[in-house]
Amino acid sequence: MDQCEPTESYCPAPAAPARVVAGPPYADCLECGKPTEYGVRTPGVVLCPVCEWQEAQRTACSG
């Protein structure tokens, strides 16, 4: 997993899909099962806004 670039002021959320597909239908969160903002055909890990924020907090840069 890439670390923050020295010129960036934040780390991107690793759980955010690289290519977002619009819904409806919306995909279910892989953590809690609630609907997400992403269409069902969005590749990669899809999380609801709450779980996405929690994942970003867990993996945030410490420096």
Rank of each mutant, 00 (worst) to 15 (best):
C61V: 12
A18I: 12
T42R: 04
V45M: 05
R41K: 15
P24W: 09
A18Y: 02
E52M: 06
Y10G: 03
P14L: 08
C48L: 01
C29G: 10
M1A: 15
E37P: 04
G33V: 10
V50N: 01
C61G: 14
L47A: 10
A22V: 08
G33H: 09
C48I: 07
R58N: 09
P17F: 03
A60D: 12
G23W: 02
A60V: 11
W53A: 05
V40L: 10
M1S: 15
C11W: 00
A22R: 06
A16P: 00
Q57E: 12
P6H: 04
A22E: 14
S9T: 09
R58A: 06
G63L: 11
M1D: 06
P6R: 00
E8K: 14
V50F: 01
V21A: 08
A56W: 07
L30M: 11
G23H: 03
R58P: 01
D2Y: 07
K34L: 13
E31N: 13
W53Y: 09
C48K: 01
G23N: 07
Y26H: 08
C51W: 00
Y26L: 10
R41P: 01
A27I: 08
P12G: 10
S9V: 10
A60F: 01
D28K: 15
R19A: 14
G33F: 08
A15C: 13
V46I: 09
E52T: 14
P43R: 00
Y38T: 06
P24R: 07
A60R: 15
P14R: 00
M1G: 15
G23S: 11
E37F: 10
C48H: 03
V21Q: 08
R58D: 02
G23M: 01
E52L: 05
K34E: 14
T59P: 02
Q3C: 07
P35H: 11
T7D: 06
A18P: 03
V21E: 05
A16C: 09
L30C: 10
C48D: 04
P6K: 00
G23C: 08
L30R: 15
E37I: 09
P24A: 13
A56L: 05
A16N: 11
P25E: 14
P49W: 09
T42A: 10
C11I: 13
D28A: 15
M1T: 14
Q57Y: 02
S62L: 13
P17H: 06
E52C: 11
A56C: 06
C11A: 11
C29N: 13
V46E: 02
M1F: 12
E8N: 05
T42W: 04
Y38G: 04
T59S: 11
Q3D: 14
C51R: 00
Y26G: 05
L30I: 08
R19L: 11
P35T: 13
W53D: 03
